[in-house]
Design a protein around this nucleic acid. Structure first.
Lengths: 121, 121
DNA sequence: CCTATATTCAACCTGTTGGTTGATAAACCG
DNA sequence: CGGTTTATCAACCAACAGGTTGAATATAGG
């Protein structure tokens, strides 16, 4: 009888991505990384918060696959990874389009129902 | 000396939107609403959770501007609102593009530095 | 008026988030 | 070797998120 049943997977990639993007500090970090690679200290500098806090944010971003990290002596350079962004963008696009399609269909329906006149003043 | 300073606005629209999208239950609700309007009970039915919990999720979605709600007798029909989705999509696009641009620039730089040969086997 | 239905409000509980400080590990440098 | 820099780990804490149950509100209808 239930038309559709939802199976909720915990910590799926989309949830990790959107959760990572939900924090303004992390978005600022990604914006900085879009300009090029950076170390933890470089990323932490403009924020009024400890380096450890930024390190935690980076761990969240890494778990979401939004950054990858190298090793250069005692530095851990971070680089932006765009694959999860594509996934998120794709999800948004799909449902927005489906919604728009629905309006288009409704619109066509209405036009069919009154094919003649009515300039709707 | 600090090249750029971040002012973190709490509860900005983008954070609200991404936070709303970070929960799989809420994404499922939005997916359902992309098919058309629905009441709270209709939305709650496929989930193994109380109607109150779904009502809370709807409040989060409403605060993020992702849904709007009408009044039809004792029902509160929900409808999808796509404007915040556009904002989120736009944010993603901007930083992904900037990153891609950076690679393009690097690529051009490299080509300029060795304009001759090298088929890179 | 009374009752049934739809929805929300309030209190509560538990796990997670986002920050702190202090200690630790790893790599350079003198 | 000892000291400095970079980054992480660990413990702690306040606030929030996401769920529960029970009570309250709003509307329709006999």
């Amino acid at each position: 009888m239930t038309p559709w049943i939802i199976d909720l997977v915990p910590d799926d990639p989309l949830s990790l991505t959107f959760a990572a993007l939900a924090d303004p500090t992390r978005r600022a970090i990604l914006a900085r990384l879009a300009e090029g690679e950076a170390t933890v200290n470089e990323l932490a500098e403009p924020f009024d918060m400890s380096v450890q806090a930024v390190s935690k944010h980076l761990k969240v971003l890494e778990r979401a696959g939004l950054i990858s990290r190298g090793r250069d002596a005692q530095w851990r350079p971070c680089r932006l990874e765009t694959a999860p962004l594509d996934g998120a963008s794709e999800w948004i696009r799909r449902y927005r389009d489906r919604w728009d399609d629905r309006f288009d269909r409704l619109d066509r329906e209405i036009r069919r129902m009154r094919p003649g006149s009515d300039t709707d003043g």
